[in-house]
Amino acid sequence: MSVRARPTSPHLQIYRWTITMAMSILHRATGIANYAGMTLVAIWLVAAALDQDALDLVNVVFASWFGQIVLFGFTWSLVHHMCGGLRHWVWDFAAMMEPGQRETMAWATLVASVVITLLIWTVFVWAA
């Protein structure tokens, strides 16, 4: 009885990276980040329910440079995940899309998420 070598599964070194592949991975990563970021919302709500001192402490942490970076990243994660969800929704209802159209939508998702995040922070955070 001869032993046959089993075929190996394709791996990331074989595939050519595409924008749609990267956006698919990033969509999953932002979904995970959104779960983690929701703890920030829960912490703020619990602090608000406890007393003014707890809320002031959380607000000081969120207002620090590190807190602002984390909140900016969380905002971008939420917006990017929403844009990615809309992209997938369009894909579900499009009869056929050419590869160039899919790549354009993937780039548009990335650009739109950055622009919308900057708009949100410009209007609601930096202008305040």
Rank of each mutant, 00 (worst) to 15 (best):
W121F: 11
W65S: 15
T30E: 04
V3Q: 07
S64I: 00
I32K: 07
R4I: 12
A127N: 15
Y15S: 10
A22G: 11
L78M: 05
V111F: 12
W76Q: 11
L71K: 00
W107N: 00
D92C: 01
H11A: 05
L78G: 03
F72V: 11
A48F: 06
A54G: 01
S77M: 07
F93P: 01
D51M: 04
W107K: 11
A94E: 15
A5V: 07
V125I: 02
L78E: 03
T117S: 03
T8N: 12
I14S: 11
W121H: 04
S64C: 00
H88Q: 15
L119C: 15
R102D: 15
G84C: 12
R6T: 11
V70P: 02
G84F: 01
A29F: 08
M105R: 06
G85Q: 09
W65Q: 09
W17Y: 14
I25A: 14
P99M: 01
W126R: 12
W65K: 09
A33G: 02
F66E: 14
M96C: 02
V123R: 12
Y35A: 06
S2P: 06
L55T: 02
R6Y: 14
N59T: 03
F93S: 04
I19K: 05
T39I: 10
M96V: 14
V41C: 10
T8H: 09
V123W: 10
P99Q: 00
A63R: 14
T18M: 02
G85D: 04
W126F: 08
R6M: 14
V79W: 08
V61H: 13
V79Q: 14
A108K: 14
M105V: 03
A22D: 08
F66L: 09
V46C: 09
S64G: 02
D53M: 05
A29L: 14
T75Q: 03
T30L: 10
S9D: 07
T20C: 05
L40C: 06
C83L: 12
A63D: 15
S24N: 09
Q101E: 10
A29Y: 07
L40M: 15
Q13G: 08
W89D: 03
L71R: 01
P99K: 06
A112L: 11
A47E: 05
G31S: 10
P99H: 01
M21F: 08
S2M: 05
T18I: 00
I32D: 02
N59M: 06
F93L: 13
A33I: 00
A49T: 04
W121Y: 04
H81T: 13
D92Q: 02
W89S: 11
A95I: 01
R28C: 03
